[in-house]
């Protein structure tokens, strides 16, 4: 019978917290960049300029057809070299975090753009007509009328995607980065207590994601009630 021994966890908490900060940092960055870049991609896909729409569609389909872990590996191998070349960094500078961030954000933007595209399409066409009839340019109609409504409808989906993304951050372990999962793994490995540490990490992920999903659900209920009214 396996004897659980949780004694290495309390001492490792500060180290694990550092890892959690990395995970949250990657999540926040990928959410922000993913939404910004995803919005541009969505607008490009809906654009009447055919080549632009085609390019955006190809981008989205490409990233959605590749496993995240491979994207991260490529970025782990390629981006640091590019950055070193461009910015003349010396070999010691740690660019793994930057590379993980870039890979993540580019990948997530593909998913966000699909959510945002659906959100834009959910705004009735008459709204653009009304904005145009008042003399707004297409860009103004988008920015002032369509996108605010689209985002308001999309908030629950965007948050749900952020929760998925937070879980996905554990994949950066391929770049040997000490995110929360990586940190737990390291501690477990060092103390020979891998099972305990991974169980603990799993529990932490579960608590955070479950609580966040519940919060999103409550928010969605409130939103629906508001719309019905």
């Amino acid at each position: 019978m396996y004897e659980f021994d949780w004694s290495s966890i309390p001492g490792a908490l500060p180290f694990l917290w550092e890892g959690m900060k990395v995970s949250l940092e990657i999540t926040a960055c990928a959410v922000l960049f993913g939404i910004a870049w995803g919005t541009l991609l969505a607008m490009a896909r809906l654009s009447s300029i055919k080549p632009l729409a085609w390019l955006a569609a190809s981008y989205v389909n490409l990233f959605r057809a590749i496993p995240l872990v491979m994207v991260l590996l490529w970025f782990f191998l390629i981006v640091p070299q590019v950055l070193r070349g461009v910015f003349k960094l010396d070999a010691g500078t740690d660019v793994r975090l930057a590379s993980a961030l870039v890979g993540f954000a580019l990948f997530e933007a593909a998913y966000y753009s699909e959510i945002i595209r659906a959100g834009i399409q959910s705004v009735p066409k008459g709204q653009i007509s009304a904005a145009s009839a008042l003399g707004m340019s297409y860009a103004q109609a988008m920015r002032l009328v369509v996108l605010p409504q689209a985002f308001r409808n999309m908030v629950p989906l965007l948050l749900t995607q952020a929760i998925v993304l937070f879980q996905d951050t554990s994949l950066v372990y391929v770049s040997a980065l000490a995110d929360f999962f990586g940190a737990a793994y390291k501690v477990g490995d060092r103390d020979g207590r891998l099972v305990e540490l991974l169980l603990f990490a799993g529990a932490v992920y579960f608590v955070i994601c479950f609580a966040a999903s519940q919060a999103v659900r409550r928010y969605q209920k409130k939103l629906n009630a508001h719309v019905a009214h």
Partner: peptide
Amino acid sequence: VFQHFELFPH
């Protein structure tokens, strides 16, 4: 002026 008003709901 449109059939469905098209006020900006937000």
